[in-house]
């Protein structure tokens, strides 16, 4: 059962990170609301942290560095989510919608 030894391999975690990143890119392009795009951007950041953690576990000489990077990514993601939500609330007050197709002032 080679399947049960997957958690000891670097490539497993790299594939997980790649799949999360592609989910994020797909959602970023396909979603029509701003909140859906924010959720997709969280996936992109999570993919980056997963890859940092994988390289940290298997390759890095000092295994504290990758964990610190992931902690900083978490802090940036929290700040980004807070700012994005407040921008969304401000946009909603002006436009009464957060649908990206309707957030236009000009024709075209």
């Amino acid at each position: 059962m080679q399947l049960l030894n997957l958690y000891n391999c670097l490539s497993t975690y790299l594939v997980i990170g790649a799949l999360l990143f592609s989910f994020g890119v797909y959602g970023m392009l396909a979603r029509r609301t701003v909140i859906g795009m924010l959720i997709s951007s969280e996936f992109i950041l999570a993919a980056a942290s997963t890859k940092f953690m994988a390289f940290n576990r298997f390759l890095a000489p000092d295994p504290a560095v990758g964990q610190i990077f992931t902690l900083f990514i978490m802090a940036i993601a929290a700040a980004e989510a807070a700012i994005a939500i407040s921008i969304m609330i401000a946009v909603y007050r002006n436009f009464k919608t957060i649908d990206t197709d309707e957030l236009v002032d000009l024709q075209g």
Partner: peptide, 21 residues
Amino acid sequence: AGPLAFSTGALMFAALTVLGL
């Protein structure tokens, strides 16, 4: 937002997986 988004995501996944492996 339709098939182009899906193909972009699939292309990203394929490229990153090949690069990682």
